[in-house]
Amino acid sequence: MKGVVYRDTHEKAWRHLVDLQAQVRDHVAVLGLLLIIDEAEGYAFLRSRPDDEGDYDGLPRLIPRRSLSFHVSLLLALLRKRLAEFDARGAETRLMLSRSQIVEMLALFLPDGSNEARLVNQVDAHINKVVELGFLRRVTGQDDLFEVRRILKAFVDGQWLAGLEEGLASYMGEMSGNTEETQ
C-alpha cells in the first residue's frame, strides 16, 4: 500500500483489504505502521505509529513527514471547510470545484497585487501541490474541474486545524511586532 486505496478506483484491492484487514493490521504493525480504513468514506491508508508508543523506538520512519508551505496549508484548511459545508447540505457525495472557485477562495488570503496573472500562477502552483498530495483530483477531460477527495478529512482534523490556527496567531503576532518596530 503505497498511497491511498480508494473503494471507487481500486475495487479489487479494496475488497481484499477489507476482507483481510486483521492480517494486514498485524503485518504492518511489525513495521511500526497503522492501517486506517474508513469504509463509510471509501478509503484506506497507512500511517506511522505515534512517537509516544515506546514499543517502536528505534524503527526508521517508513512514511515521510512533509512540511507544507503556508499557502498549501491554508488551501487544505479552506478545502476542508468547504467539504464540511458540502456534507452538511447532504445533497451529493462528491464535491466538485472549478479552478476559478479555488482561486477565489485562496485569493482572499493572498496579498493584494496589481498583477492578477501572477496571482493565478501562484494559486495554480498551490493547486498542483495539493493534487500531488492526493487531496484534489483533476476530473478527466475537464482540466479546470477538481474533485475534493474525502481523504482530506483524515488528515485535516480538529487537531491539525488548531495547530494551523496557533501558527497563524504567532505569524500575525510577528507581523504586528515587525510593523511596530518600523514605525
Rank of each mutant, 00 (worst) to 15 (best):
G54F: 15
G3M: 07
L145D: 05
E116K: 15
L133W: 08
K81R: 14
L95T: 04
L136F: 02
Y171R: 14
G32I: 01
K81E: 13
K2P: 12
A91C: 11
G113A: 07
A40W: 04
R138Q: 10
Q21D: 09
L119T: 08
V24P: 06
D57Y: 11
R150K: 12
Q21V: 06
R138Y: 01
R65H: 13
L108N: 11
H71P: 08
K129P: 01
R49P: 02
L164I: 09
L97E: 02
H10K: 10
S170Y: 09
M105N: 04
W160G: 01
L20H: 14
L74P: 02
S67T: 12
A40P: 06
S73F: 03
G141R: 07
V24L: 00
A117I: 10
L136V: 03
D57F: 11
T93A: 14
A84S: 13
E11F: 08
T179G: 06
A154W: 03
V103M: 08
L106T: 02
F70D: 09
P60R: 05
V103P: 01
R138I: 09
E116N: 11
G167K: 02
S100I: 09
F109G: 04
A40Q: 09
V72C: 09
I63C: 04
A40M: 07
R138M: 05
E116V: 12
E116R: 14
A154L: 01
I36G: 05
H16W: 13
V130L: 04
G163N: 15
D144Y: 05
L62F: 05
W14S: 07
M96T: 09
Q122N: 14
L35N: 00
S98V: 00
Q122R: 14
E104F: 10
R89K: 13
T93G: 11
I37K: 04
M105P: 02
L168A: 12
F146K: 00
K12C: 11
M175W: 14
L161W: 06
V28D: 03
A44C: 06
L34R: 13
G163E: 15
E53D: 14
D112A: 10
E181Q: 13
E53N: 11
L119N: 01
R25C: 06
G167C: 04
F86V: 05
E174R: 15
S69G: 13
A44F: 07
P64H: 00
A22P: 08
R25W: 04
L106I: 06
A91G: 11
D51N: 09
L133Y: 10
L20E: 15
V139N: 01
G54H: 14
S48E: 15
E92Y: 08
V28G: 00
V139D: 01
A88M: 09
D8E: 14
